[in-house]
Amino acid sequence: MSEAKDRPRMPHPYETLPEHSFWRTAVADRDPLEISGLWSPRYPIKRRTRIVTAGSCFAQHFAKALVARRYRWLDFEPGPAGLTADQRRDYHYGTFSFRTGNIYTPRMLRQWLTWALTDAKPPEEAWEKDGRYYDPFRPGVEPGGFVSVKELLISRSETLTAIAAAVRGAQVFVFTMGLTEAWHDKATGVEYAVCPGTVAGQFDAHRHGFVNHGFGALMDDMTSALRLLFRANRGLKVLLTVSPVPLTATASGQHVLTATSHSKSLLRAVASELVAAQVRVDYFPSYEIITHPAYRGRFFAPNLRSVLPEGVDHVMTQFFRDQAAAFGGDTVATPPRTSLPPTPVSPTEEAPEPELTEAEELRCEEELLAAFAPDQRDV
Rank of each mutant, 00 (worst) to 15 (best):
R24S: 14
L369Y: 11
G131D: 14
L274E: 00
D75K: 00
S36Y: 10
V149N: 09
K129S: 14
R305A: 08
P123N: 08
R110N: 14
R30P: 13
E358L: 12
G178S: 06
S157D: 12
Q171L: 09
G235L: 11
S261P: 09
W73L: 07
W73Q: 04
R70Y: 02
F230Q: 12
E358V: 15
V275S: 07
Y14C: 13
L239F: 05
P352D: 01
A26I: 12
E77V: 03
A326C: 13
S339K: 13
E358N: 07
H184M: 13
G94Y: 00
W73G: 00
T317V: 09
P196S: 03
A271T: 03
L179I: 08
H12F: 13
D330A: 15
G235C: 10
W127K: 01
Y295M: 11
S252W: 00
A373Q: 09
A359P: 07
T25N: 09
R48Q: 10
E19M: 09
V345I: 12
M108L: 14
A63E: 07
F22D: 07
N233Q: 09
R107T: 02
A351R: 00
H20C: 09
T338H: 10
R363Y: 11
V147S: 13
W112V: 10
Q376F: 14
Q60K: 03
R321L: 06
F230T: 08
G131Q: 14
P374C: 06
A232H: 11
A371Y: 03
G216Y: 06
S306G: 05
A28S: 15
L266T: 01
Y104K: 05
I51W: 01
A193M: 08
E310T: 13
R298N: 05
V199I: 15
T53W: 00
T95A: 07
